[in-house]
Amino acid sequence: MLELRDVDVFIDASQILRKVTLSAGESEAICLVGRNGAGKTTTLRTIMGYRRPAAGTITFKGEAIGGLPTHAIAARGIGFAPEDSGVFADLSVAENIEIATWTRPGGRPAAERLALAYEIFPRLRGYAARGGAQLSGGERKMLSIARALALDPDLLVLDEPFEGLSPAIIPLIGESISAITRLGRTIVIAESNIHHVPAWTRRLYVIERGEIIFAGTLDEAHRDRAVLRVIGGRAS
């Protein structure tokens, strides 16, 4: 479904990603774990076309997407929920979700896509008429994912969906994301806390200083000393 091969990314003169290679198969959930500043967000933003890879290839459904403009990448079926949620405060919750059905009219009918978004995040249904600015942090994260889902994507890219949330709400959002994977959508999640990595994650990549230092299952990661030193020190 999605494959990055030897991707180098520079921001100004400094190299942020070095030969990043990772892949996510059809209806697979993978997690990119790393400390703040390790290159997680840059990796996701490069997938979304905000950053142009200096070297390497990015393919989605067998097509090279590296260097395409962001909207064209979205149109191919990749939904994105940024770290700061990026909820449009000026628009209502319903409008936030609906936008994606206007910009990508193909595929499933709009009503079905909206219904699915509200089904996955039922709490948003009651807030449909509210302004985007009147939501709590957790609700913003929900809206951000619901909105990406309304694009009817085959792949969802979620940047730290649990970041800054109260422990009470994390399982709620985790369950919603898990429900999305059961729909057969592929999911790529970036996460800085290995303890937040959902158990149903098929594969884990650990990134440190712009390089992938580990690829394997969650269990294997928990047994890997180098991994724990980088991202989960105190737990072992």
Binding site: G49, P69, G86, D90, I99, R147, A148
Partner: peptide, 16 residues
């Protein structure tokens, strides 16, 4: 309005 507020996110939602 969405574009005015956050053009990057608007682009990720397929806005050209």
């Amino acid at each position: 309005r969405a574009t005015a507020e956050n053009r990057e996110v608007a682009a990720a939602l397929g806005v050209d």
